[in-house]
Design a protein around this nucleic acid. Structure first.
Lengths: 126, 126
DNA sequence: CGGAATCCTGGCCGATACTG
DNA sequence: CAGTATCGGCCAGGATTCCG
């Protein structure tokens, strides 16, 4: 489990709290849309509408929701340009960049095992 | 987007298909329970009930469902020992191990930025 | 343009019960 | 012990509308 990796890093008294926090973060971030957003941002800065175009199939609501979540956790930074019409840009913070490495790894993995998985699925019958 | 990383790897005619497949895999695997299962398995072989105990808060149903999904995609191997009572063991396949590296990375990331995130959350008010 | 609020529906997920 | 099936509540998430 995740928590195992946290042992020894904090006071014993805090274990339970750090524990549940780690789980919470995991629940937040380990989701399809969050990953796609992080991957899209990469090292670029994108506007809301650009992200929306970039990520095929994401709804207005889901994009907003996930951006808020990522912002709350400090993975993306949101800057508002007080122009009219408004211009809002999103960019990855340093922690966000750190996670991007992981997400990139997953993309590479997907790429690498695409055919493996496809044949595995074909074999699977139930 | 994910699909960008797939370009050039397949025939142009297959782009759309490979595309949607990649997205499908992403949707399947980028979920909290799948990650926790993969992390729990690591390089060990575990029984159903052991996994259930290992992963706090997972229901019988979710565990079954996710294990099936991972098996279908060829990430875990399921071996049934025809004893009584039955004994079913799960272990990561080679593709599964590959993804584990990614999941491990995310765990390390969580560990590393735990306090960053915590303070970021505290600042966040809306 | 970006975001918030509302409504509404599909399906996630837990609880329970039943087989081998 | 492991798996399947069924039911039901609840929430994720899409569509739409209105605001700054």
């Amino acid at each position: 489990m995740v928590t195992k990796r946290l042992k020894g890093s904090v006071d014993d008294a805090d274990l339970t709290r750090a524990d549940s926090l780690a789980r919470e973060i995991f629940s937040d971030v380990a989701n399809k849309w969050a990953f796609l957003i992080i991957e899209s941002l990469g090292e670029r800065t994108l506007r809301f509408s650009e992200l929306r175009n970039e990520i095929e199939g994401i709804s207005h609501k889901m994009l907003t929701q996930n951006l808020r979540m990522l912002e709350r956790n400090g993975l993306v930074e949101r800057t508002v340009h007080p122009t009219v019409p408004p211009r809002v840009e999103y960019t990855l913070t340093e922690p966000g960049q750190g996670l991007r490495a992981t997400v990139d790894g997953m993309c590479a993995w997907t790429h690498r095992y695409l055919s493996h998985i496809e044949t595995s699925r074909a074999r699977f019958t139930t």
